[in-house]
């Protein structure tokens, strides 16, 4: 992957809050290739969301540069930048006073896309995230389940046909079965649409199964970065611990299932 130039590049990026007392992101350098699916994992407060917000200029870094397709985003109009990228918010971030269709179609509407085109796009996206068009189009966010709302969040991020999608725990509120299915669906979509995706997750298993590479954040720093195989060779104890949990679970699960299965 190092032979193609990176689509998103963080270079010595730092961001702190509360007058420098909280170093949310601390000297992070990270290249993300075009078409790559990167998962970001790490404990609560390790700086994952901050890293993502920096990428579309919801906040600006204290130090370092972020480039997209070689262009320093500090010199790009943040409004246009954000309309070009999809963003799925950790808390959903659906507008409660807008219908599901209006929520999904918001960025195309801001871009001045004609109404019929938006309506058609909204229907396609509802299909894509497996929500019934007729049933959900005109409902309001509070009339949906938590999982349905998260799907709408994903659909909204994809509405303006972005090349880059930033997702902050997009599948957090889903049951394991739907979560797995939607993850797999999204992964397929990612490949089909040629997207570049950065997805934050708490779930190491999900990260390992879906992503090309996994970035591990710890106290604002990038503790490790690599494919599942590369990470498994890491001698960092924190990474080992992160990987150990799903592995042990898988072994126990396997044991449990085979014990029951053999006579």
């Amino acid at each position: 992957m190092s032979d193609t130039p990176p689509l998103i590049a963080f270079s010595h990026v730092a961001k702190s809050f509360d007058g420098g007392r909280v170093k949310a992101v601390d000297d992070v350098t990270l290249d993300i290739a075009a078409g790559e699916f990167l998962a970001v994992v790490g404990g609560s407060g390790s700086g994952k969301t901050t890293l993502l917000r920096l990428a579309n200029r919801l906040i600006n870094p204290d130090a370092g540069t972020i480039t997209i397709a070689g262009e320093d985003i500090a010199r790009v109009d943040p409004i246009l930048l954000r309309r070009r990228m999809g963003y799925v918010f950790q808390s959903g971030g659906l507008f409660p006073h807008m219908s599901i269709a209006a929520n999904i179609g918001i960025t195309p509407r801001l871009l001045g896309t004609p109404k019929p085109e938006i309506a058609a796009r909204v229907d396609d996206l509802l299909d894509l995230v497996q929500l019934d068009r007729v049933q959900h189009r005109d409902r309001f966010p509070h009339e949906l389940s938590g999982g349905q709302r998260q799907r709408v969040g994903v659909a909204r991020a994809l509405a303006a046909k972005p090349h880059i999608v930033l997702m902050d725990e997009p599948f957090g509120a889903l049951d394991p079965v739907t979560r797995d299915a939607l993850g797999a669906d999204y992964r397929a979509l990612h490949a089909r649409l040629g997207l570049t995706t950065v997805m934050i997750t708490h779930d190491m298993t999900e990260a390992l199964l879906l992503a090309d590479r996994v970035a591990v954040m710890r106290e604002g720093r990038l503790a490790a970065l690599g494919t599942a195989a590369e990470l498994s060779r890491s001698d960092d104890p924190y990474v080992g611990e992160l990987l150990g949990t799903p592995r042990r679970q898988a072994e126990r699960l396997h044991a449990a299932l085979s014990r029951n299965g053999t006579p």
Partner: peptide
């Protein structure tokens, strides 16, 4: 979180005010 989402989907401050 909603004003942040408004910015995130690409609204200008004015659009955020009037639409959200």
């Amino acid at each position: 979180a909603l004003t942040e989402a408004a910015r995130g989907v690409g609204m200008t401050p004015r659009q955020s005010l009037t639409m959200v």
